[in-house]
């Protein structure tokens, strides 16, 4: 398992990590959820021994990424956010290369990647640089897995990927988890939090909260209301003017609204909107989403 304790890392004036502590259990699918610049990549790079922390400590199954970096590198598979395989080598050459570097063979651990690799196998002689985004991703994942790592570290594997491929990717992760591999994955997409066993919400180098997605939602202590109408821009501007409102955020076809303490009164809001010339706005209480929680915690 992984223990991270009070990690700090500064680049010039920027505190990329400002006292980050998390714990990941064996066999867990753990998500690091946060926007660009939150510190996700810095944390991963320290864990996998590619970057030295300024202070704080990390342990992976008791191994220190600083002192025991050679051993740490044996037990992890890493897929960076930017495609980093050899573009002038073919699919099969890349895979064989990574197997050989880790002292194994493609055959020995093929069962682990079969599911993923068979989808790109028909193109195995094509140079990696000439593959589509989805195929590159499958190849990178295969290369990160071919030495049967104990921990798979995936840095924003779904960023810029369409909704269909994102869903397929998460299905692949679930199958890998079932093989007993611990998975640490980062994403800027809040809706993907629900697909993890536990998550850490991170922004500006600080952990906002760590928990299971269900518990994070449960602990959100304000009632959230969804408000909708035909003219959303007009509705948004008017809801902002309502005196008892604490936050108004667009969420697709609805606005999510929270009231200031002691002012929770949807009936009064409705009357207010009617007086502003919006007679048909629909208001209903809803369960908050992870994104509601993230925004509440980050303000």
């Amino acid at each position: 398992m992984i223990e991270v304790n009070q990690l700090c890392k500064q680049f010039g004036k920027v505190k990329a990590l400002n006292g980050v502590s998390i714990q990941v259990n064996e066999g867990e699918l753990y998500g690091l959820i946060g926007p660009d610049g939150a510190g996700k990549t810095t944390l991963f790079r320290i864990l996998i021994s590619l970057l030295l922390p300024d202070s704080g400590s990390a342990r992976l199954w008791g191994l220190d990424p600083v002192a025991d970096f050679k051993k740490v590198r044996q037990i992890i598979g890493y897929m960076p956010g930017k495609f980093s395989l050899y573009e002038d080598l073919s699919i099969i050459e890349n895979l064989t290369f990574f197997a050989t570097v880790f002292g194994t063979t493609v055959e020995e651990n093929y069962y682990l990647i079969e599911d993923i690799f068979k989808q790109i196998e028909p193109f195995k002689n094509r140079p990696a640089g000439k593959l589509s985004g989805g195929m590159k991703q499958k190849l990178a994942l295969s290369c990160a897995l071919i030495h049967k790592p104990r921990l798979l570290v995936l840095d924003e594997p779904t960023t810029g990927v369409d909704a269909v491929s994102r869903q397929e990717f998460w299905e692949m992760l679930k199958r890998l988890k079932a093989q007993g591999i611990t998975i640490l994955v980062s994403t800027p997409y809040m809706d993907e939090a629900g697909l993890c066993d536990r998550v850490a919400l991170i922004q500006n180098g600080k952990i906002l909260e760590t928990n299971s997605p269900e518990d994070i939602i449960e602990r959100f202590n304000k009632p959230v209301f969804a408000v909708s109408d035909n003219n959303m821009y007009q509705l948004l501007n008017n809801c902002r003017q309502y005196p008892g409102v604490a936050s108004v955020y667009p969420f697709g076809e609805e606005l999510h609204i929270t009231f200031s303490e002691g002012s929770v009164n949807p009936v009064h809001l409705k009357e207010f909107l009617v007086s502003k010339g919006i007679p048909d706005a629909n208001i209903k209480q809803i369960q908050p989403t992870i994104e509601d929680c993230f925004m509440e915690l980050s303000t």
């Binding site: 946060g34 660009d36 810029g160 821009y233 667009p250 993230f294 925004m295 980050s298 303000t299």
Partner: peptide, 24 residues
């Protein structure tokens, strides 16, 4: 073209309000 990729949730919404304003 994908103007909000990787942007934090609050800024993403502020960005869309700018889009609404421009369209308006």
């Amino acid at each position: 073209d994908e103007p909000t990729s990787g942007v934090d949730p609050i800024t993403r919404r502020q960005f869309w309000e700018m889009i609404y304003e421009a369209a308006n």
